[in-house]
């Protein structure tokens, strides 16, 4: 899957509906702005504030989609709504502010958190489409994230057994060049761009060693190279599956903080 393909919507109809809704909201905003001076405290400005708040509340219900997915039938629908309503929520926030920069810390927090949460959400959507396809397209090995450390250990054991009665050259090469890196997971963000990133460079020493050993040993080198290739693929699996999980750390705390500040914001508006 190409980078562009990953940006294609899963449900183009939903994208069209969202774009249409955004357009309607922009028209409403422009009419409101013409009818009376824009203010977040009244009129359409307030309406967009309410809209953003309700949408954010809905967005925060996303984690409970599985046990209570019935109103929306499927988790996919939850995700689609979570995605597109999030975009509308961000637009509502911008229209609530009248497309002006905030003046106080509170305003900045709310605006930046809204933007951050929405953008990290969109990033997550892209990651969820991009990573699985690149893993399946570019790698042979498949493994559950939790099993990868165990599989690495097994590969180490297999490699140790393989070079147990090997020549000094191979043994020294294994101990100095391979063993350390083979025994530990080396995740890298580079796999996000290319799942085979750095593989050729990593396997080059094996190929060079093959020229200096006899035929019998050469087979062992090839096996060792195969083990190392598998390890590299597991590294890629581990890295990308880890990213798929860890992007939530970018998204969820900001969303939680946004909700907390939004409550203060609404309370402040009601009280003051």
């Amino acid at each position: 899957m190409s980078f562009g393909q990953a940006l294609r919507p899963k449900e183009p109809r939903n994208l069209v509906i969202t774009m249409a809704l955004c357009l309607v909201l922009v028209v409403v905003y422009l009419i409101g702005d013409y009818l009376q001076p824009q203010s977040p405290k009244r009129g359409f400005g307030l309406f967009f504030g309410f809209l953003a708040a309700f949408l954010f509340i809905f967005e925060m219900m996303y984690p409970v989609r599985r046990p209570r997915a019935r109103p929306l039938k499927t988790a996919k629908r939850w995700l689609q709504l979570h995605l597109y309503l999030g975009v509308i929520a961000l637009l509502s926030v911008l229209m609530h502010t009248g497309f002006h920069w905030p003046h106080g810390g509170m305003g900045w927090w709310l605006l930046l958190l809204s933007a951050w949460t929405s953008l990290t959400g969109l990033l997550g959507v892209w990651l969820q489409k991009w990573i699985p396809s690149s893993l399946s397209d570019g790698l042979r090995v498949e493994a559950l994230y939790e099993r990868i450390p165990g599989l690495i250990e097994k590969l180490c054991t297999e490699a140790d057994t393989l070079v147990a009665d090997a020549s000094d050259v191979l043994d020294r090469f294994y101990r100095t060049e391979v063993r350390t890196s083979l025994g530990k997971l080396t995740p890298s963000y580079a796999y996000l761009v290319d799942v085979r990133s750095g593989r050729e460079r990593a396997l080059e020493p094996f190929r060079r060693l093959g020229q200096f050993v006899d035929e019998e040993e050469k087979e062992k080198v090839d096996d060792l190279m195969s083990i190392y290739t598998e390890k590299l693929e597991l590294d890629a699996q581990y890295s990308l599956q880890g990213i798929l999980r860890r992007w939530l750390v970018l998204h969820v705390p900001a969303a939680g903080l946004l909700m907390g500040l939004m409550v203060i914001h609404v309370f402040g508006w009601l009280w003051y």
Partner: peptide, 21 residues
């Protein structure tokens, strides 16, 4: 010669408990 296996390299010895979301 050893080949890189397609799919999961080896079966798990026990049920792998996944980390909850």
């Amino acid at each position: 010669a050893r080949q890189v296996s397609w799919g999961t390299p080896a079966r798990s010895q026990h049920y792998q408990k996944l980390r909850s979301i």
